[in-house]
């Protein structure tokens, strides 16, 4: 094309009353010259969009409120004689919260794009789909980890306050703190699985159903089946929820808890913390990977 390329007059704000004449001699160049599409901008944008969605706040609020309720009920009902095992009991319930609500939050963070049709404007603004998904995934990790951290801090603070009021000293071991911290990773993993399922199915309902079946229904089914076929006991290690429980089982790595019986059956790798972490990562990779492949291939 042989048109002269020059800057044209500023357009905004202005009047649009003038009718078009013949083809102009100048070709327009955007004045947003410093604008760039990059991963950092996409993450910032996705964080802003997540912040603007009421569902993000609802999921975070439910996670925090449940963690506080756990603290209130455990700390106020715990007999003084069992104060040493407070954190262990507290953690058991917190782990249940970590594998449920973050999953729903992850689903909603992704499914809102499809339920509203906003995926089209998102991908029009960021047409490199893998870059967009990467940015959105990182934003989801920040939201999920942030709300879980907040829930854990609220749980610890309320527990400490109630126990102190009762004249009980909150006793926390290093393993218990590590286990509690690992719930952040569990929440992120479960949330990312839900996030991936939502992109995969383009539906919050379908994604939550898949998550519900994988996290809650399958372990129960395997437990029942294990009564008839013991192999299911071994297979259970490969389900997300048992894997994430293994991953958070810091007490098992305590040398004091080690089984010293030389005749004891060695624990399978898949039931160890590392095995649990590997299985959990595989589930996250499967969910996000299949979502990425479909996102890249299909029409938006």
């Amino acid at each position: 094309m042989s048109q002269t390329i020059t800057e044209s007059a500023p357009a905004f704000p202005g009047s649009y009353a003038a009718p078009a004449s013949a083809a102009p001699v100048t070709r327009f160049r955007s004045r947003s010259g410093d604008a760039r599409l990059n991963l950092g901008h996409i993450i910032a944008s996705e964080l802003y969009k997540a912040k603007a969605l009421p569902s993000t706040w609802w999921c975070a609020a439910i996670t925090v409120v449940l963690a506080v309720l756990v603290a209130v009920s455990a700390a106020s009902s715990m007999p003084e004689a069992y104060a040493q095992s407070f954190m262990s009991m507290n953690n058991q319930i917190l782990s249940m919260i970590a594998v449920t609500f973050p999953g729903v939050a992850g689903c909603l963070l992704a499914s809102v794009e499809y339920s509203s049709g906003a995926i089209r404007s998102s991908l029009a603004a960021a047409p490199r789909r893998m870059q967009w998904m990467g940015g959105k995934t990182i934003a989801a990790v920040i939201v999920l980890a942030g709300s879980q951290l907040l829930a854990l801090l609220a749980n610890l603070t309320v527990s400490w306050l109630i126990l102190t009021m009762r004249g009980i000293t909150l006793s926390v071991t290093g393993f218990e703190v590590a286990a509690m911290s690992s719930f952040i990773a569990v929440a992120v993993f479960v949330g990312l699985m839900g996030f991936g399922f939502a992109i995969l199915t383009r539906s919050a309902a379908a994604a939550i159903t898949i998550g519900f079946v994988l996290i809650l229904i399958l372990p129960m089914t395997f437990q029942i089946l294990a009564n008839f076929l013991p192999t299911f006991n071994d297979l259970m290690a490969f389900l997300p929820m048992p894997a994430m429980t293994n991953m958070s089982d810091f007490a098992a790595s305590d040398p004091a808890m080690a089984n010293t019986d030389p005749d004891a059956t060695p624990v399978s790798f898949w039931w160890t913390q590392t095995g649990g972490l590997v299985v959990s990562l595989i589930w996250v990779a499967l969910s996000l990977g299949s979502a990425a492949v479909l996102l890249q291939r299909r029409d938006a």
Binding site: S32, A35, H41, S45, K49, A52, A125
Partner: peptide, 12 residues
């Protein structure tokens, strides 16, 4: 929020 979210993808 919709416009800001979109503008942020490009640092506008």
């Amino acid at each position: 929020d919709y416009l800001i979210g979109m503008a942020m993808t490009h640092g506008l």
